[in-house]
Structures are given as C-alpha cells and as structure tokens.
C-alpha cells in the first residue's frame, strides 16, 4: 500500500525496494505479491496503477526466477490482459497505463524467452489487434 499510495508525490523507492526484499524473504512471497500487484494495476486511479507497474518492474529485476515464474503464469498474465482489453477493463483504464502494460509484456518476451506463456499472451494481443505497434 505504501509503495503504490496515490498520495505519494513521486515514486517512493524505499518502499518499492522494501516490497522486493519482503518477496525475497518469504516462501510464498511471489504468489502473494502478484495478487496484490494485479489488484493495484487495475486501479481506476492512474497514479496508483502507474506506481504498481513500477513496483512490478522492480520486482522483475530484483526478485529472480521465483518471481518470473509467477508473472509467467496465465493466472497473472490474464490480469494484465484484462487491463488492456476493451472486453474487460480496457475502456476504463488510461492510455498511459495500457501502454506501459504492453511495453512491459514486450520487454519480457525479449528478456525472458524461457517464460513461454508471456510470449503466448503478447502475441495473442497482437493477433487480436490490441497491440498495434
């Protein structure tokens, strides 16, 4: 909550890194973290969602393969798909948030080719015309 607080005036890296550290300390850290992050990323408040995406990106860089495995499941990827798809939340989410979600998905298809479900999700969005470029 502190790392994504809408009243933060800027991204608070103390709390963001604290969140990453907590994931690394706990056995079920990655599973719990992706559920919390999915909820924040779907926030109708743009700034809360943007901060959640920054936290997600920080976790991908700092929390290793256990976290990658969890992000690389359709269970989490479907929550990101809901954000960009007009059939789900897409019409209510800002372009800034949707663009960032697509940029993150693309970056992981390149950086984490072994997480094949990320590619499946990204190319499905391309086929459906949700990712245009």
């Amino acid at each position: 909550d502190k790392a994504t607080n809408p009243s933060n005036r800027q991204e608070d890296w103390e709390y963001i890194i604290g969140f990453c550290d907590q994931i690394n300390k706990e056995l079920e850290g990655p599973q719990i973290a992706v559920r919390l992050l999915a909820h924040k990323i779907q926030s109708p408040q743009e700034w809360e969602a943007v901060q959640a995406l920054t936290v997600l990106e920080a976790c991908m860089k700092n929390c290793g393969r256990r976290f990658h495995n969890e992000v690389g499941k359709f269970r989490f990827l479907n929550e990101l798909i809901k954000v960009v798809s007009p059939k789900y939340l897409g019409d209510r989410i800002s372009e800034k948030v949707k663009t960032k979600v697509i940029e993150l998905l693309y970056s992981w298809t390149v950086a984490l080719p072994e997480e094949s479900k990320i590619k499946d999700a990204y190319y499905m969005l391309k086929r459906q015309g949700i990712v245009m470029f």
Partner: peptide, 15 residues
Amino acid sequence: TVSFHDDSDEDLLNV
C-alpha cells in the same frame, strides 16, 4: 491456499 510448490495455472484469456 497456494503453496510454494503449486504449479497450477489457468487458461489464457481470449479477448
């Protein structure tokens, strides 16, 4: 509850 060794997943959503 989800456990550390739980590799279960759901299907990819269709948009």
